[in-house]
Design a protein around this nucleic acid. Sequence first.
DNA 1: CGTGCGAGATCCATAAATACA
DNA 2: ATGTATTTATGGATCTCGCAC
Lengths: 344, 344
Amino acid sequence: MGNNLKAIAEELNLSISTVSRALNNTGRVSEETRRMVMDSARKHNYTPNRVAQSLRKKRTNMVGLIVPDIGDYFSQVIKGTESELSANGYSMILADSHEDPIKEANYIKLMYQSQVDALILATVSDDFRWTKIYQDSRIPVIFFDNEPDSLQCNKVVLNNIKATEIAVDHLVRLGHKDIALICGNVKESTAKFRRDGFVEAMKKHNLEVNSNLIKEGLYYLDAGYSSMEELILNKNENPFSAVIVSTYMLSCSAIHAIRDYGLSYPKDFSFIGFDIEDSDRLFSPSITSVLQPGKQIGKLMVHRLLQSIESYDSLSSDEEFSVSFVNPVIKIGESTALFKKENN
Amino acid sequence: MGNNLKAIAEELNLSISTVSRALNNTGRVSEETRRMVMDSARKHNYTPNRVAQSLRKKRTNMVGLIVPDIGDYFSQVIKGTESELSANGYSMILADSHEDPIKEANYIKLMYQSQVDALILATVSDDFRWTKIYQDSRIPVIFFDNEPDSLQCNKVVLNNIKATEIAVDHLVRLGHKDIALICGNVKESTAKFRRDGFVEAMKKHNLEVNSNLIKEGLYYLDAGYSSMEELILNKNENPFSAVIVSTYMLSCSAIHAIRDYGLSYPKDFSFIGFDIEDSDRLFSPSITSVLQPGKQIGKLMVHRLLQSIESYDSLSSDEEFSVSFVNPVIKIGESTALFKKENN
DNA sequence: CGTGCGAGATCCATAAATACA
DNA sequence: ATGTATTTATGGATCTCGCAC
């Protein structure tokens, strides 16, 4: 005895279609048979087979999410994505590319085969030929985190300019003037925007931008460490009272450098990290940090995708690609303090 | 032009089944038609529709994972689960119950409807009536983290006895004798085992167990804080040179208490936390901690499940439920130091 | 003419049985 | 008897069409 429509139909001597209509409240069914069907369904512990539904409806109610690494910041995005999806009747297939473009490509294909209704992707690749296939199948795709600037696509990205701007603002409020920046390789757009935000904010406050205080960690493996090291070693010639770091990895290694040189924040200088969440407040001193609102990013992406799915269904208007910006927030900790003369 | 078997079959004037056999290397197909089919498939960008495959094969190659909270320790389990699943050709549907038994129940039902081939669950509920439905459908289920002791089931759990034992061992090696323990409510089996492990380890080392130094954080909202507080305030009457905390949440709040009382480890006493990973080594001083090997737990669970799936397929032996224990590890940090007289 | 219901097609792929050389 | 291909049934649900009363 299978618990499918057929089982119920046979028990009640009805046709499968009638049972289906009774359960879905679609089409015409008499009140009496409806009740009988309902009862039998309860008895059989019937639940619709989603696989069969998906095949028929050409809709799986599943969305794929591919991230380079489950954990840290991405956990937040995953969490936000999942809860927003589930609130709208969708499930999430999660995949971890381990920062490997080949694995990522396999997952992209797998998600396609799995007939996901939409795909969310933090890519580590620069090959976007596959997007055509998704376009042809009208499966909306949205990018986040690493924005493929070579590609016309939907994306939700951090307002990178603001990310460093709010950090500068905070430091200026505290009286700092000589502010250093450690950013990534500015050939990547994210790093570039964050540097630009820093420069613009400095200008806005009528502060001089000392290019010796801007460290564009290039291709070093541990760019944050060496950048911080350079700043510390040249502090006499190029004094600074505060440092802003513009990515999480750079923040970690910069902190290691500070520690190795026997320095500490905010005593020797103020420090602003990036994406250092510390939600359980275990750090001491706590670290002032710019944060990407991961959950919000997840929610926003799902929102956009569901809109796309709907609009694809009704009129097939070749809509424009949407780029949404999310504002960073700054979490004030103890690593930043009022400017004191001794800092410089 | 759909990219399905039918499209290829029509193009080549073959039947759908022939095309299927050619692509799957099953049954007999002439070398010539095989090549033609392959070529056409490439041209059409054909990939099998997994939904249709699933319906036919009664196997989705998807496994459900439900956790109470995406993040922290669970991220590790999720990561381990995902990579082991994907290495075996399975995908993962991830759900976050937000510690809500009702949401959890809905997800359990949803996973069932989605026809997952197996279910992994860190439950927050004590209602296990649904397991019968899974049993009837021969869908293997495995529990972790919170073990339902009222239920005969598959589970992978931490060797909780060892978790506190290795902490005691470490402290004894450092010369500590008066060791305090903050554990959860011992009415829950996890907390009880961890307390037992502590007591046994103390006895093993011929150390006296001072019951005043064992704080079973009961139903307080912030049990870790108040337990630590009590230990500190009564340090004169009940001296100790080291503290072990047996859950992550308790560790966090215990640390807050230590900080609030102006104390620090390892100066005032040694401290061993629980599940304080700090993989990027940002803590200073770094914290010695017992860790649950989350990734390993994930991998192990998948391993067990795939075995079950296989065995269900071949002989339907009503196999016993398997309970697997995973050994905790201890990460040595700077919060534990050699015993000094001043400690007591 | 409308209400209740059933037959059959469809979604797409797989697999067993059968037909044709 | 042997290799190749087609027919047909199957999985479970949905949906259009049309038949009766």
